[in-house]
Amino acid sequence: LEGMTFQLKYLGVTMVEQPKGEELSAAAVKRIVATAKASGKKLQKVSLTVSPRGIILYDSASNQLIENISIYRISYCTADKMHDKVFAYIVQSQHNETLECHAFLCSKRKMAQAVTLTVAQAFKVAFEFWQAAK
């Protein structure tokens, strides 16, 4: 409930057409990984806190807030099959209706799975709260 924090590396973002889907997210992750590799830049270290309220991202080096994403804007999360150390989620942009897929590199495959399962747990708890509040 109070949140779980993970140390990850931010790979990047790409637009997607739909809020969910295995093939859609796999294609998005593929694009993000290719772009990150092509840029050759060092990846930004981030701390990602998951709770039933949503996801909060901080820059690990500066402790600056990057984004606070409400659970209601997140549509989907996944541990990628092809890139098994990659965790990704799809979120509706705060500024317009566009959907973005954000991807993060984990140190281990198990960690990508743990982040994904933690976000899934947050979805479940948020849904229980929402139902109770109705």
């Binding site: 809020p19 209601y72 549509s75 996944t78 994904t116 948020a126």
Partner: peptide
């Protein structure tokens, strides 16, 4: 292992109205 772990959010786009 060919399984993808993925989850849909059941509260996506639900309003936060009380």
């Amino acid at each position: 292992n060919t399984n993808t772990i993925h989850f849909d959010n059941p509260v996506y786009q639900k309003t936060t109205e009380d």
